[in-house]
Design a protein around this nucleic acid. Sequence first.
DNA 1: AGCGTGATCTTT
DNA 2: AAGATCACGCTG
Length: 197
Amino acid sequence: MTSLEPAFFDCPTLDLAEKLLGKIFVRRMKAGFELRGRIVETEAYLGSGDEACHAWRGRTKRNSMMFAEPGRLYVYFTYGCHYMLNIVSEPEHTAGAVLIRAMEPLAGESFMQERRKTSLATNLMSGPGKLTQAMAIDLSCNGSSLFGEEFHIGNAPELRKDAIGKSTRTGITRSRNLPWRRFIIGNPHVSKAKVME
DNA sequence: AGCGTGATCTTT
DNA sequence: AAGATCACGCTG
């Protein structure tokens, strides 16, 4: 399996959110084994014109990684207990990122089961907080490159257009009308969409 | 349907 | 310095 190269990430954030579906996120642990997950759900966040984006009002200490060159990880902590995994997009000095919302476990399941305290495959990484817990991703991963030893994304065939679903983003209050969520239709590892009035 | 939990950001 | 908010997950 070949790894995605920098050129893959050099595209508009919304395109990247779609292109990442089906690709294989890989973390090589220091102990030698690998954690792998197939990306099945994403959301796009843009600095300009997107009030739900951390960087919509400019650069701060937390969001500064969103201004880095594409192909890095942007990890932050929220709700007092969850880490969120994003992939930086857009050229350097322009804010943008794709939130990885759900993955289908492909390798390292026993490690994930222990961390998640469940053996149900569809409950290991079927949400943004769940997948960081399963893969032991925390603030120490913020800024990591996808072109190094520890993290990379494996290529996979492009999905058919009709296999990709679109909707508004989940769990936000501002800019909630923007249809910037992408997911693989019918995949059981997609997080269950929160129903809100 | 409700709430934990703590960093970050905004307002005073 | 204080208060509001938050790209969530779990229990009940």
